[in-house]
C-alpha cells in the first residue's frame, strides 16, 4: 500500500531521454538510497512520481495509484523536492498553513512539524531570510506535515550542518523503522552509506543497480583482510600452501586478497602464528559506485 512502483518509465525532452525505460520498486520499512551522477534522472523520476511532469510513456504509482488519483495525497506522500520550493515572501508558518489547509491536515500539525524540524523559533520569519539549511528543514517539515507513509527526499542533506545531517539520518532511519517507505536521493556517498539499506543507482536515465547496500558493495569489491603479525615469514609460507599471497601494505601492516578474516584466523591459529590485528577489508560505497559508473561509461563509450 505504501510501496512505489516504477514501470517502463520514460521522459524524453526532444531527442534526449532524461529517464529511459526505468522499472523498479521502492519498498516500505527501509531507507532506499537513490544514487546517480548529476543529470542521471533522479529528480525527474521524483517529479514524474508526483505528477509534476508528464511521462512520455510508462507509469509511476504509489500503492498502485497515480499520485494525482490519491484522494489525500499529503497524508500518503511527503516530498522534499528542492529547498527553493517556497515563496520567499511568506513566513514559514504561513507556507505550512497553506499546505495544511489544502491537505485537510489539522492546523496544530504546523507547529508540531516546525518544532520537529527545529525551526519553531523562526516560524514567523519570511522564508527569504532563511539560510539554505533552514529552508531544507522547512522542506522536511512540509514533507512530514501529513504524517505520510511514503517520503521522497531529494538531496535532503544539502546545506545542512553536521548536526542537521545527523538529525536527518536519525529521522529517516526512524521513519523507515516505523514501516514507512523512504526514498532519499543524494550525491554524497558517505552520507548514503551511513543511511541507506537498499540502493537504486541510475546512469543516463537508465537503471544500473537495484540491490541491497551490502550486495552492492560485495559484488564490486574483492574480499580481503588487513592484518599485523609478528611473524610475516611463517605466515607467508602458510598462506602460500593454500594459494594466498601476503602483500606488504607498509607500516607493519599486511593485506591478503581473496580470503576472509575467519579463514585466515583459523589458519594462523592452526599454525600457531601470532596475529596482532585482523579485519575484513571491504570497499567503500564510493569505490563500488565509481567502479559501477566507470563500467557504465565504458559500455556507453564502446557501444
Amino acid at each position: 500500500m505504501n510501496s512505489i512502483e516504477i514501470r517502463e518509465l520514460t521522459k524524453a525532452y526532444g531527442a534526449h531521454r532524461a529517464v529511459d525505460g526505468l522499472t523498479f520498486d521502492v519498498l516500505p520499512g527501509r531507507v532506499t538510497g537513490f544514487l546517480g551522477p548529476n543529470g542521471a534522472g533522479k529528480s525527474t523520476t521524483m517529479r514524474l512520481l508526483l505528477g509534476l511532469d508528464r511521462p512520455t510513456s510508462g507509469t509511476a504509482t504509489i500503492g498502485g495509484r497515480r499520485y494525482v488519483d490519491l484522494p489525500d495525497p499529503l497524508h500518503r506522500v511527503g516530498a522534499l523536492l528542492d529547498a527553493q520550493s517556497a515563496h520567499g515572501g511568506r513566513t514559514a508558518r504561513d507556507h505550512l498553513r497553506i499546505l495544511s489547509a489544502a491537505g485537510r491536515i489539522p492546523p496544530g500539525r504546523v507547529d508540531e512539524v516546525l518544532e520537529q524540524a527545529g525551526i519553531a523559533s523562526a516560524a514567523g520569519r519570511r522564508i527569504k531570510s532563511f539560510s539554505l539549511g533552514m529552508r531544507q528543514r522547512l522542506g522536511i517539515a512540509a514533507a512530514l506535515l501529513g504524517d505520510p507513509g511514503v517520503l521522497l527526499l531529494d538531496e535532503p542533506t544539502n546545506g545542512l550542518d553536521p548536526e542537521g545531517i545527523i538529525w536527518i539520518r536519525e529521522l529517516m532511519r526512524g521513519l523507515a523503522a516505523e514501516g514507512r517507505t523512504v526514498l532519499v536521493s543524494s550525491h554524497l556517498m558517505s552520507e548514503t552509506a551511513a543511511l541507506a539499506d537498499h540502493l537504486i543507482v541510475l546512469g543516463n536515465g537508465k537503471l544500473l543497480a537495484d540491490t541491497s547496500m551490502e550486495e552492492f558493495i560485495d559484488a564490486r569489491s574483492t574480499p580481503g583482510v588487513r592484518l599485523r603479525t609478528s611473524d610475516p615469514r611463517r605466515l607467508r609460507a602458510a598462506l602460500a600452501r593454500d594459494g594466498f599471497d601476503l602483500t606488504d601494505a607498509g607500516e607493519g601492516r599486511w593485506t591478503v586478497e581473496g580470503i576472509q578474516a575467519e579463514q585466515l584466523g583459523t589458519l594462523a591459529a592452526r599454525e600457531g602464528i601470532p596475529v596482532l590485528e585482523l579485519a575484513d577489508e571491504r570497499a567503500s560505497l564510493e569505490q563500488a559506485y565509481l567502479d559501477l559508473t566507470a563500467d557504465h561509461t565504458q559500455f556507453t563509450a564502446t557501444r
Partner: peptide
C-alpha cells in the same frame, strides 16, 4: 522559485 511544485503536490 518552485512554489508551483509545492502547490501541485498538495
Amino acid at each position: 522559485n518552485g512554489a508551483l511544485r509545492t502547490s501541485l503536490a498538495a
